[in-house]
């Protein structure tokens, strides 16, 4: 993201000249090619891109689960290598531990250093705060198998929030949910983002979701992944999915996504 001249906000996350290639049968395949992106503090970036492009790889590199071939990732000017306290992730599958109750799953996200400083009561209060934030009150003592898909993903978001990262990566968190649950979680996520004032980056396949949630939309190309275009989303919240500005932007993103091909119109139903 180019630095906005008028804005005084600082850069939360900065990705510079990132490259990633994998060795496949003695060949080097470029997955990410020279990707550079600046994300301002408090932004909500929606990343869309064709499936099979390097979106998830990009996230795994930012999150420290994978290493780049070349290039850097920095948080507030500090270069990070590997897993970092300031970056955390909500996974596509909720990845809750089935043997832990909801409250204990959320507590797992709490940083150990911080946990040592807090008493049992303070820990509980903190867990309760996030349970309330994601609207899971009354389900603290449930096991994950007793929750619906949407509730599991809420718990998973709470577990990531309690770790108090500066940047939250959300890797297609709602892709496995039905349409209505997804919309309700998109609303919930908007509220959480506004209350917590975290910088969030979302990968999604759903252009509607990207427009509904993002302050900016980054459209990625096919492999090797580079940034095709960045859209600013200047639509007031709460956003009306049927308003002209919403549908117009969605159409523009869709066109960019499909490379101005005529299918765009047919997909846009």
């Amino acid at each position: 993201m180019s630095v906005n001249q008028e804005s005084e906000k600082s850069i939360a996350l900065s990705i510079k000249n990132l490259n990633k290639s994998f060795a496949v049968d003695n060949d080097l395949v470029d997955v990410i090619k020279d990707l550079t992106l600046d994300v301002e503090e408090g932004e909500f970036i929606s990343i869309v891109g064709p499936s099979g492009c390097g979106k998830s790889t990009l996230f795994r590199i930012i999150g420290g689960l994978d290493t780049p071939t070349d290039g850097t990732v920095s948080i507030e000017g500090r270069q990070v290598s590997g897993i970092d306290q300031d970056i955390s992730m909500v996974f596509q599958e909720n990845r809750l531990f089935p043997w832990r109750r909801v409250k204990d799953n959320i507590l797992f996200g709490l940083d150990d250093e911080r946990r040592k400083k807090l008493g049992k009561e303070e820990q509980k209060a903190l867990v309760d705060k996030y349970i309330e934030l994601v609207d899971l009150k009354g389900f603290e003592n449930s096991y994950p198998k007793q929750l619906s898909g949407g509730m599991k993903q809420r718990a998973s978001i709470a577990r990531t929030l309690i770790s108090d990262p500066k940047v939250l990566l959300l890797d297609e968190p709602f892709s496995a949910l039905d349409a209505f649950t997804r919309m309700s979680l998109q609303n919930a996520l908007t509220d959480i983002w506004r209350k917590e004032k975290k910088t969030m980056i979302l990968i999604t396949h759903d252009i509607d979701e990207a427009v509904f949630l993002g302050t900016k939309i980054v459209v990625l190309s096919e492999r090797p992944t580079r940034i095709k275009r960045i859209f600013d989303v200047n639509i007031d919240r709460p956003r009306d999915r049927s308003s002209d500005e919403f549908t117009n932007l969605r159409r523009d993103v869709m066109r960019e996504f499909f490379g101005h091909k005529s299918e765009a119109v047919e997909y846009n139903i």
Binding site: I83, Q85, F108
Partner: peptide
């Protein structure tokens, strides 16, 4: 592996990962 990655992302130590994630799993 996905569970182990969760422990990594939340920066849990090796022993903690063994006792709180691998053994229960």
């Amino acid at each position: 592996r996905k569970y182990i990655e969760v422990a990594q992302i939340f920066r849990k130590k090796r022993l903690q990962t063994i006792f709180e994630v691998m053994l229960p799993a």
